Simulated assay, not measured.
Amino acid sequence: MRERHIKKELGVSWIQVRNETHVFASEDNRHPLIDEICRKLAQLIYQIKLIGYKPDIASVWHDVEDEQREEYLSYHSENPAVAFGLISTPHGDTIHVIKNLRVCNDCHTALKLISNVTERER
Rank of each mutant, 00 (worst) to 15 (best):
P32T: 06
I95T: 06
V60D: 01
V23W: 01
G52R: 03
T89P: 04
E27G: 11
S74C: 10
R69F: 03
Q43W: 09
M1N: 09
I48S: 00
K112T: 14
I15R: 01
K8I: 12
R2K: 09
E27H: 14
N79D: 05
P90Q: 10
P90G: 11
V23C: 10
C104G: 05
C107I: 13
S115W: 02
Y75D: 02
E20C: 09
K54W: 07
L73I: 15
V97M: 10
N19A: 08
Q43P: 00
L33V: 03
P90I: 06
A83T: 07
E27S: 15
A110K: 08
T94N: 08
F84E: 01
R4P: 00
A83G: 08
P55E: 07
S59P: 00
V23P: 00
V117D: 02
L111E: 03
G52Y: 07
E27C: 13
K99F: 05
P32R: 09
Q43R: 10
I45T: 04
H5C: 07
T94Q: 09
W14C: 13
R4K: 14
H108Y: 13
I114R: 00
T109V: 08
L50N: 11
Q16D: 09
E78P: 00
V23D: 01
F24M: 06
N19F: 03
I51F: 04
D56Y: 05
F84Y: 14
H76C: 10
I45A: 07
Q47R: 08
K112V: 12
G52C: 07
E121P: 06
D93L: 09
K54L: 13
G52M: 09
T21E: 14
L50H: 04
T89K: 05
Q16K: 15
R102V: 05
I45H: 08
R18A: 14
L41H: 01
L41Q: 06
R4F: 10
E71K: 07
V82D: 00
D66K: 09
D56E: 10
K7N: 13
E78L: 05
I87K: 04
N29K: 11
L113M: 12
K99E: 12
M1L: 08
V12R: 05
C38D: 12
A42C: 13
C38R: 12
F84R: 01
I37D: 00
H76G: 01
I45F: 12
H62R: 13
E36I: 04
L50Q: 14
H62D: 15
F84C: 02
E67F: 07
Q43H: 10
V60G: 00
L113Y: 04
G52L: 08
S26A: 14
I114E: 00
R39E: 13
I15E: 05
V82A: 02
D66E: 15
D35N: 13
G85S: 01
H62T: 09
I57V: 14
I34N: 07
N29L: 12
R39Y: 06
G92Q: 09
I6S: 03
H91D: 14
N105E: 11
N116A: 10
V117Y: 00
V64N: 05
R4W: 04
I15D: 01
E71W: 06
S13P: 04
P80I: 02
V64H: 02
K99N: 15
K8W: 08
S74Q: 11
V82L: 04
R30T: 15
V60S: 02
S88Q: 12
C107G: 11
